[in-house]
Amino acid sequence: MQEFGLTLVVLALGIIMSVYGYYDAAAGRPNTFLNFDNLIDGIATPMSYYAIMAVGLTIVIITGGIDISAGSIMALSALGTAAALQLFPSTAPAWQVLPVAVVVALGIGLLCGTINGGLIVGLNLHPFIVTLGTMSIFRGLANVLPPEKTLPSAGKRLPAAFTTEFMRVEVWGIQPMPLIIMLLCVALGWVYLRMMVVGRETYAVGGNEEAARFSGLPVAWIKLRTYAIAGLAAGLAGLVSVGRFGTASTSTGTGYELTVIAAAVVGGASLLGGRGTALGALLGTLVIALIENGIIVMRFAQEYRLIIIGMAIIVAVSFDRLSVYLSARRGNQRA
């Protein structure tokens, strides 16, 4: 099973780095990899945006589609949330601030995702082309709409009820909120795909769109809602990001789409459609996050980061190909 293999990869990476961290640490100092600060702040928190978006994207990929506009949607959502929240005094109470933040961030994400889906379904265009366009448009809007390059504006601060007391809240010395939201998303994604009728419809459309249509499934609506969900996930990622950093900028989320696609694909989502899981999305992101963290912990030059990530993607996809090839050999041209 795909998730099983990924778990092994995660464990292997973890063990290698723990061993390295053990010998790397100066006498009497904690393991440089295996310590709470690194595991939470160095891995879990930064990966949370990716994982949240990877779950959304995995659902898209299962239908045989793709969405490369996630990073731009995330920026719009983060900026919109910051713009809305800076209207509040920095001491505004949580019951005022949090609902506004959630509604604005998720609203923007949902809207952008629906636009993607509407264009793809309504104009019957290839999702790559559409989201390539909207990636640029949304990023452009993120550049044009805010009055400044960074929000909140100079001299202002976002309400503490959203930042230090919510997204950055400390429990036992760590900040678990992004991690919790990420796990919640994965759980929701898992329930959606595994246990709900909508999830089944998603796999059916991705597996054979025509057969799904011939079975009476509302294919257009199924696809539309898939992109809306991916947008929603990107909006949520924006919310997490602005809460954690206390700011959003026009360049928030730039280039994230590629990491997110990589995470989904490493997690076993097949670009041909029909295959992928929410847990895979999480594990795929974790693999990438571990590699990224390993580069830091093992003090490789940052320049190698891109090369190593790139190789990880290709290795993952070739495994995918290999498994397809092997099952094709076993099943002959039935596939």
Partner: peptide
């Protein structure tokens, strides 16, 4: 083509 989702 129209009947089964072969991978499911």
């Amino acid at each position: 083509r129209q009947g089964a989702v072969l991978g499911m």
